[in-house]
């Protein structure tokens, strides 16, 4: 167990590609941090620098208060779960689990004990003597997890470990990973671009964009108070609507917004069809499309006047007709004020 400190880290690949710009991040002992962001934003690069699979161009990475920049991956005492699992195809499941322990000269009885324990926790005992190719995707995933936990490393690093599984299995494994991490209390860094995975797994969520951190915080904090337009658009589904302040002024109650606000974010689920009886703005919009998705329904709306398209999430059985123009209400307290040029929140 250990904390991980990333301090002023920069990564420039051959050919002058800057993948990470001056990044700082501290991961306290036992925490599960999720790195999320669009493809190519540098998540894997950051993870691989922690693992020692990629050199660090500038700055320092410390694990357990020791700078590890110059250390080989083996000396860092971390375990990594790869997207394609990277199981050794010519070894049995048992061989895969034992490999890291054998390399470290663990005594035989200790190896057997740890393998048995990991196999029990992950319920892979029946497959111990099979080869990886004789396993299903989900079973392989468990073996990959097993290989990480038998070593009892200082930290787990996950690079999109669930992205090769189908939706149902992904949900199960997600819960299992969370449970496992809770009980082992091993510091973990988890990379994904699946929002649901990010929101549910993270103790702390790190949103990255183009090699920089946009915002760090508890998932719910990021959802409720996105610090930048990027985070506002990235977290939440359907994404937040962004409406010009000029359009909102004069519609409904008096707007008192912080200095410099020119855009307002509106979460689809804060748009209401009935007047909430609190200070709110009133928007009139034409329903272009009505999408029932079960627990709620999505309305695709065109705002009167500006013609902007927005999305509202309303209770499932809201009685509306496509093509009708209806009044909509958003509480002023639910508006997220932003400045377009700086891309930042203004309150």
């Amino acid at each position: 167990m250990a904390s991980i400190d990333i301090s002023a880290v920069k990564k420039i690949y051959a050919g002058n590609v800057t993948a990470i710009h001056n990044l700082d991040l501290t991961i306290p002992d036992g925490e599960l941090v999720v790195l999320v962001g669009p493809s190519g934003c540098g998540k894997s690069t950051l993870l691989r620098m922690i693992a020692g699979l990629e050199t660090i161009t500038e700055g320092t990475v410390s694990i357990d208060e020791q700078v590890v920049n110059k250390k080989e991956p083996a000396e860092r005492d971390i375990a990594m779960v790869f997207q394609n699992y990277a199981l050794y195809p010519h070894m049995s499941v048992r061989g895969n689990l034992e490999y890291g322990l054998k390399n470290r000269g663990t005594p035989r009885d200790e190896i057997d004990r740890r393998v048995a324990e990991a196999a029990r926790i992950l319920e892979i005992e029946p497959f111990l003597d099979r080869r990886p190719r004789q396993l299903s995707g989900g079973q392989r995933q468990r073996v990959a997890m097993g290989r990480a936990i038998v070593r009892k490393p200082k930290a787990f690093l996950f690079d999109e470990p669930l992205s090769n599984l189908d939706a149902k299995l992904r949900g199960q494994m997600r819960i299992e990973i969370k449970r496992l991490q809770r009980s082992l209390k091993t510091t973990s860094v988890y990379v994904t671009h699946d929002q649901l995975e990010a929101m549910t797994l993270a103790d702390r969520l790190v949103v990255m964009n183009a090699g920089r951190i946009e915002q760090v915080g508890a998932p719910i904090e990021l959802y409720e108070r996105p610090a930048t337009l990027f985070v506002a658009g990235f977290i939440g589904s359907p994404p937040m609507n962004l409406i010009e302040v000029d359009y909102l002024r004069g519609r409904g109650d008096d707007l008192k917004l912080p200095e410099g606000t020119d855009l307002c974010g509106v979460r689809p689920d804060t748009i209401q069809v009935a007047d909430p009886g609190e200070p709110s703005v009133r928007l009139d919009a034409t329903i272009e499309l009505y999408e029932p998705i079960g627990g709620e329904s999505h309305l695709h709306l065109r705002l009167e006047g500006s013609g902007q398209l927005i999305v509202a999430a309303v209770p499932a059985r809201t009685a509306v007709v496509e093509g009708a123009t209806i009044p909509l209400f958003v509480r002023i307290a639910d508006l997220h004020p932003f400045n377009r040029d700086s891309g930042r929140r203004t309150d």
Partner: peptide
């Protein structure tokens, strides 16, 4: 031979020689 296998072995504590004889060479068989 997938690069990730070599990387996994490196993380699993195998030096270059050990990686070659326990991973690369068998997979090259």
């Amino acid at each position: 031979i997938p690069q990730s296998l070599i990387e996994a072995a490196a993380i699993d504590g195998a030096g270059p020689f050990k990686r070659f004889w326990t991973i690369v060479f068998p997979l090259l068989s």
